[in-house]
């Protein structure tokens, strides 16, 4: 099983990953519709924090319509046609990377582990790797 990992200390806040993500999920240039998040902590302490999906599956477990499914890579993704925007998935996400913004998209969205964000990150923040067993 694979997931996305982020090393926040290396992030420079450029958001190329967000645009790449929106291009994959929605075929749009729109970082507001990305499935990962960069939190900027400025002016103090002056650091970035990257939030990514751990593929924990909590969202799928609570989805009443079964719209959150697993793809060939084992990643949970939202089947847009079956999502009813009930938002049940949002509060259970431990990383706050389950997104519902009805004004932007007619379905919830999340990381489907396409890897496009990794490809454009110039500072090696992001990587896809095996999910490590919990200690």
């Amino acid at each position: 099983m694979l997931r996305l990992y982020a090393e926040s200390a290396k992030c420079s806040g450029c958001r190329a990953c967000l645009v790449a993500c929106s291009l994959n999920l929605f075929q749009e240039n729109n970082p507001k519709k990305a499935a990962l998040a960069i939190l900027a902590h400025f002016p103090t302490p002056g650091t970035y924090e990257v939030k990514v999906c751990t593929q924990c599956g909590e969202c799928a477990a609570v989805c009443p319509t079964g719209a959150i499914k697993q793809n060939a890579r084992g990643a949970y993704y939202v089947d847009f046609a079956e999502c009813t925007l009930c938002e049940a998935c949002v509060p259970v996400c431990p990383e706050n990377v389950m997104f519902v913004r009805a004004e932007l998209a007619p379905a919830a969205w999340k990381c489907d582990l396409c890897g496009d964000c990794v490809a454009v990150c110039g500072t090696d923040v992001l990587r896809i790797g095996e999910i490590e067993a919990k200690a």
């Binding site: 420079s12 958001r15 002016p43 302490p45 002056g46 110039g122």
Partner: peptide
């Protein structure tokens, strides 16, 4: 230097965000 800071879409951030010990400013 505390953090490398980039502009939009930049793979090669030139921005160096700093914190001074003497003055305690960022």
């Amino acid at each position: 230097v505390v953090t490398d800071k980039g502009c939009f879409g930049c793979p090669s951030p030139c921005g160096k965000y700093s914190r001074t010990k003497r003055y305690g400013t960022n």
